[in-house]
């Protein structure tokens, strides 16, 4: 049942992603039809802070019936509309039971710090865009405790068994992420977009170590890198003075008003 729910929700999510990109494109195309010639665009140093939340992690947490859960948000500053330092934080955990009744439990806060680069450059002869095509990196960290229960060793030939106790084990994990994504302004100051990120742990556990099955902020620890997708919605807070400056269009000085144009024509006929 949960697999069907996951499937349906993923389908809906895919349609939302496709539709939002399509809608944004149509909107942009429509606007560019109104011929506006802009003067040189001066991008201010600071363009505000975006507060955003991840929809995919929240949705998958609700669908996984508590096996794994993650809720995360981010604060991202915008400098020169090119450099976007970001602080991501969240709360994640797992309560997993395998088919052999081995249990794993953890929950903790996690944080990531990184920088995105906007690859869309503002062109002089085109309308300035607030949309972003981002490439960046993150350094993530989580310090957490975890329990592994119901592990036992049984000697099938000589006989005997032993229950293993792996309670309240503590660890700190650090990983890095390579991020690629887009973000578009769907309504004024409301941004939506997705990012695909590849996560890799900085250090590898030694063979035989009691490794955690799930790392908050990183995901399932399978000894390899994890690839995940985020779909974020966010609100951009801008300084009052900056609201008009970026994205506003100065009309060209040389443009001739219709009335003046008419007068000139009359003079010529005379």
């Amino acid at each position: 049942m949960s697999k069907i729910l996951k499937y349906i929700s993923s389908l809906i999510l895919c349609f939302v992603v496709v539709y939002s990109v399509q809608a944004q494109k149509t909107k942009t195309e429509a606007k560019t039809k109104t011929k506006i010639v802009a003067d040189t665009i001066k991008t201010p140093l600071f363009n505000g802070i975006t507060v955003q939340g991840d929809l995919i992690s929240a949705a998958s947490s609700m669908l996984s019936s508590g096996e794994t859960y993650s809720y995360e948000g981010a604060l991202q500053a915008d400098f020169k509309h090119k450099y976007l330092p970001v602080l991501e934080f969240g709360y994640a955990g797992a309560d997993k039971l395998t088919s052999d009744n081995i249990g794993f439990k953890t929950n903790a806060l996690f944080g990531r710090l990184g920088l995105d680069f906007n690859l869309i450059s503002q062109k002089k002869d085109k309308k300035p865009t607030t949309n972003l095509f981002l490439v960046g990196f993150r350094l993530g960290m989580s310090k957490f405790n975890y329990n592994i229960t119901n592990v036992s060793i049984t000697d099938d030939y000589w006989g005997g068994s032993q229950a293993m106790l792996y309670n309240n084990l503590s660890t700190t994990k650090i990983w890095y992420e390579i991020v690629v994504g887009i973000r578009v302004e769907v309504i004024k100051n409301i941004f939506m977009g997705w990012t695909v990120r590849s996560k890799s742990l900085l250090s590898k556990d030694a063979d035989g170590n009691v490794t955690p099955w799930y790392i908050p902020g990183f995901g399932i620890n399978n000894g390899k890198s994890n690839t995940v997708i985020n779909y974020t919605i966010g609100y951009k807070f801008q300084l009052p003075s900056k609201r008009k400056s970026f994205g506003s269009i100065k009309k060209p000085n040389a443009e001739i008003k219709p009335e003046t144009k008419l007068k000139n024509n009359n003079q010529q006929t005379k």
């Binding site: 395998t98 081995i102 794993f104 592990v151 060793i153 009691v210």
Partner: peptide, 14 residues
């Protein structure tokens, strides 16, 4: 000595 393999495999004695 005990050796932990994974959550799916549990532990073994080496």
């Amino acid at each position: 000595t005990d050796k932990y393999l994974s959550l799916q495999c549990g532990s073994i004695k080496v």
